[in-house]
Amino acid sequence: MKRTYLPGIIAMAAIVVASNILVQFLYGNWLTWGAFTYPLAFLVTDVMNRVYGTAAARRVVLVGFVVGIFCSLIGTQIMGEFGPLVTLRIAIGSGLAFLIAQMLDIGIFTVLRNGKWWTAPLVSTLIGGSIDTAIFFSIAFSSSLSFIHPPTDVSWAAEVLPLLGVGPEAPLWVSLAVADWTVKLTLALLALVPFRIITARLRTS
Rank of each mutant, 00 (worst) to 15 (best):
K2Y: 13
R3L: 13
G8H: 12
G8F: 15
A11W: 11
M12W: 09
A13Q: 06
A14R: 01
V16R: 08
A18H: 08
A18S: 14
S19Q: 06
N20H: 04
N20M: 06
N20C: 07
I21H: 11
V23T: 14
Q24P: 13
Q24F: 13
Y27G: 12
Y27A: 15
G28E: 01
G28N: 03
W30K: 01
W30Y: 08
W33N: 11
G34V: 09
A35C: 12
F36E: 10
T37A: 15
Y38M: 14
P39Q: 06
L40R: 08
L40I: 12
A41C: 15
F42V: 07
F42D: 09
V44K: 09
V47D: 04
V47W: 02
N49W: 09
R50H: 13
V51F: 06
V51E: 05
T54I: 12
A56Y: 07
A56L: 12
R58Q: 14
V60C: 08
V60H: 06
F65C: 03
V67S: 08
G68R: 11
I69C: 13
S72C: 15
L73D: 07
I74C: 01
G75N: 08
G75Y: 02
T76Y: 10
M79K: 12
M79D: 11
F82G: 10
G83M: 00
G83W: 00
V86W: 05
R89V: 00
A91H: 01
G93P: 00
G95F: 03
G95Q: 06
L96I: 02
L96F: 00
L96P: 00
F98R: 04
L99T: 05
A101W: 08
Q102E: 13
M103L: 15
L104R: 06
L104H: 04
D105T: 15
F109E: 07
R113L: 07
N114F: 04
N114Q: 10
G115N: 10
G115D: 04
W118K: 06
A120T: 01
P121V: 01
P121I: 00
S124N: 05
S124P: 04
L126W: 09
I127V: 13
G128C: 01
T133K: 10
A134D: 13
A134E: 13
F136D: 04
F137Y: 15
S138E: 12
S144G: 12
S144E: 14
F147D: 09
F147K: 08
F147E: 04
P150A: 02
P151D: 01
D153S: 06
W156H: 09
A157I: 06
A157P: 05
A158K: 07
V160F: 06
V160G: 02
P162W: 03
P162F: 02
P162V: 07
L163F: 01
L163S: 05
G165F: 07
E169N: 15
E169F: 14
A170E: 10
L172A: 11
L172Y: 13
L172T: 09
V174R: 02
L176P: 08
V178A: 10
A179V: 02
D180F: 13
W181D: 03
T182A: 14
L185P: 04
T186G: 15
L189Y: 01
L190Q: 01
A191N: 15
A191P: 07
A191I: 12
V193Y: 09
F195G: 02
F195W: 03
R196T: 15
I197N: 08
A200C: 04
R201P: 02
S205A: 14
